[in-house]
Design a binder for these strands. Structure first.
Length: 261
DNA sequence: AGCACA
């Protein structure tokens, strides 16, 4: 890929007004020039103060602004490595808690040795300076690494596209759709509260019923509308709760809608 | 594959 020559130098960001067509509606940035050992949280720190930054997503305008202000920025003072940022070819579609805050992330990845990290937004504002080149991310404690999966946002091989996901907005509701969900494959230690906590992140969530009576617990989660149930199902499918000692949850539409009251 | 409450 032909990189335009870009600014490498000390000091702040260089506004390199490339001959870009920003009129694409794309709000995902493709970032290359990152060192191999870049950590997700470093990227986070880079963007966290950019208006419109949304965990890993920005709206279009903000993405352009972030692009322009960060493009060419020296990322690693040691090596002089600088960022090269362009619009991604298509938007990434993060799987994330809807409507929820920026860092509502259900980590669907396999467990790492670090185990259960958090979700916390860790707004530790250690340094308030706007100078990212001093943003020595690697020395801070706290970990928001789980907020980015790294597969999409940071493609450090520099070859890939920034996204692999399709962009359809419509979520198909399917056949035996029901606004109540049936949830199985919960661990034996799953609690109603824990599950409720997760489900509450989804719009339209009504109530939860956990049945542990025979063997492994199963749960019924009621939503306002089928579309909302579908959304939650799609997004939570196969994800594991912290309490889980097995694979992810199996979620289906319940056979019948939960009784009111 | 496992679907209750009334």
């Amino acid at each position: 890929m032909a990189y335009d020559p870009y600014y490498i130098g000390g000091g702040g960001p260089t506004i390199q007004h490339q001959h870009y067509n920003y009129d694409t509606g794309i709000n995902t940035l493709f970032i290359s020039g990152l060192p191999d050992d870049v950590k997700p949280r470093e990227i986070h720190n880079l963007f966290r103060r950019r208006p419109g930054f949304d965990s890993c997503q920005l709206n279009h305008q903000s993405a352009i602004a972030a692009l322009q202000s960060l493009n060419g920025v020296r990322f690693d003072p040691e090596t002089g490595a600088s960022l090269h940022i362009e619009l991604a070819r298509s938007n990434s579609r993060r799987k994330r808690g809807p409507a929820g805050g920026p860092y509502v992330v259900i980590d669907k990845r396999q467990k790492t040795k670090t185990g259960a990290q958090e979700i916390s937004s860790d707004d530790g504002d250690e340094d308030h300076n706007e100078q990212y080149e001093n943003d020595d991310a690697s020395s801070k404690k706290g970990d928001i690494a789980n907020t980015m999966s790294g597969d999409t946002a940071v493609d450090s091989d520099g070859a890939g596209v920034a996204t692999d996901e399709h962009t359809e907005k419509t979520i198909d509701v399917g056949d035996h759709a029901c606004s109540t969900l049936f949830i199985a494959n919960l661990g034996p230690n799953c609690t109603e509260d824990e599950l409720k906590q997760v489900l509450s992140l989804y719009p339209g969530f009504n109530m939860l019923k956990l049945c542990a009576r025979s063997g492994m617990p199963v749960a019924f989660a009621d939503f306002e509308k089928v579309e909302q149930a579908a959304e939650a199902m799609q997004s939570l499918q196969e994800s594991s709760l912290p309490s889980s000692d097995r694979g992810g949850m199996h979620i289906e539409y319940a056979r019948s809608k939960m009784r009111k009251r």
